[in-house]
């Protein structure tokens, strides 16, 4: 067999990873005295973005089919609100409440998926309706700023500190106290989601069908794949993962409000695109999206660490990166065409 040559998609992924490494290294050098080099800084990126990671995984699956789901931000707000009201005011057990939230996610995705897959309506329009609906429902449930502190089981779960073993990355702070780096439970959940979706995309029929549908819908149908069903499943998966993301988000924020997670869908799309997922479908990988999430997380951490910069600068940096990656993608597409 010939030596396996890399295709341009892998190259894009490498660029994303390299960019993250460079960015992080620069941060470590510039903000050395501000604690950027500590392992905890990196772990905080994961802690703060566990919800985004779940959502980005779902977004990637939908984008692979050539679609998009802009309802995810609102759905997260709805999830948080349901959790807060359900656990705090009604007193439903957190585990049951989480299951309810997940079920709602599946139902929500099934409706959107049915409209997109079986009725052939533009995904943008369908999920925009979903976006308004979820945000509206959130306000119907409550317009108050709620915080979660009474549901002891949930609070305990959220407060679990999983410390890094063997003292790796541990350091003594100025007060002479030993700090052991840790992650939260929701980070583990998010990383599990990442792993599962990676395996699903690579090793299951459903995963490959997503790629086929995104690559060429007509061909996929001609080859005997059920395009409509695959699309519907993609939206169900996206909303389901979004609900898992909602739970992770809630465990991190421990609060709910109507305006929560506004613009979150755009962060998820940005992370996927930076990670090498094409908006036209058929190309992408959750590993890329993972690094996309890390990159956006690193940017905001850098801006925060600086302390003097307006937080809006992180949006500008993300915008610049998006441009960079979109241009890069089209350059690769052009090169491919030329090579023929």
């Amino acid at each position: 067999m010939k030596k396996k040559s890399r295709n341009s998609n892998t190259v894009l992924l490498f660029i994303t990873i390299a960019l993250f490494v460079v960015m992080y290294a620069v941060g470590c050098i510039v903000y050395k005295d501000k604690g950027f080099t500590h392992l905890q800084t990196f772990l905080n990126i994961l802690i703060n973005n566990s919800g985004l990671l779940c959502v980005a995984c779902g977004m990637t699956c939908v984008m692979l089919t050539g679609g998009i789901d802009i309802s995810v931000g609102s759905l997260i707000a709805l999830d948080c609100m349901l959790l807060a009201v359900g656990m705090e005011q009604v007193g439903i057990h957190p585990v049951l409440m989480c299951l309810i939230v997940l079920a709602i996610g599946i139902l929500f995705g099934a409706v959107q998926g049915f409209f997109v897959g079986y009725l052939g309506i533009q995904p943008f329009i369908v999920t925009m309706a979903g976006m308004f609906f979820a945000r509206g429902m959130t306000a119907v449930i409550s317009t108050a700023q709620l915080s979660i502190n009474k549901a002891t089981f949930f609070v305990n779960m959220a407060n679990i500190k999983l410390e890094v073993p063997f003292g790796i990355g541990a350091y003594t702070n100025r007060k002479g106290k030993l700090q052991v780096p840790y992650i939260r439970l929701h980070v583990v959940i998010a990383l599990l989601v990442l792993l599962v979706i990676f395996l699903v995309l690579r090793y299951t029929k459903f995963g490959r069908n997503l790629y086929a549908v995104g690559g060429n819908e007509v061909s996929a149908a001609m080859m005997g794949l059920n395009v409509k069903k695959t699309k519907m499943q993609a939206y169900i998966l996206a909303s389901f993962l979004c609900s898992i993301g909602g739970i992770c988000y809630c465990m991190n924020a421990m609060a709910a409000s109507v305006t929560q997670a506004t613009g979150f869908e755009m962060d998820a799309i940005a992370s996927s695109v930076i990670g090498g997922t094409l908006l036209t479908g058929g190309v992408g990988n959750v590993i890329g999206s993972f690094f996309g999430v890390l990159i956006t997380g690193t940017i905001s951490t850098l801006v925060k660490t600086n302390g003097k910069l307006l937080s809006s600068w992180s949006s500008i940096a993300v915008a610049a990166l998006l441009c960079f990656f979109i241009v890069l993608q089209s350059v690769f597409a052009l090169m491919k065409k030329r090579a023929k």
């Binding site: 490959r208 790629y211 690559g215 060429n216 007509v218 061909s219 996929a220 080859m223 058929g282 190309v283």
Partner: peptide
């Protein structure tokens, strides 16, 4: 027309 998926 070739009915295959170019990205696979």
């Amino acid at each position: 027309e070739v009915n295959l998926c170019p990205n696979l």
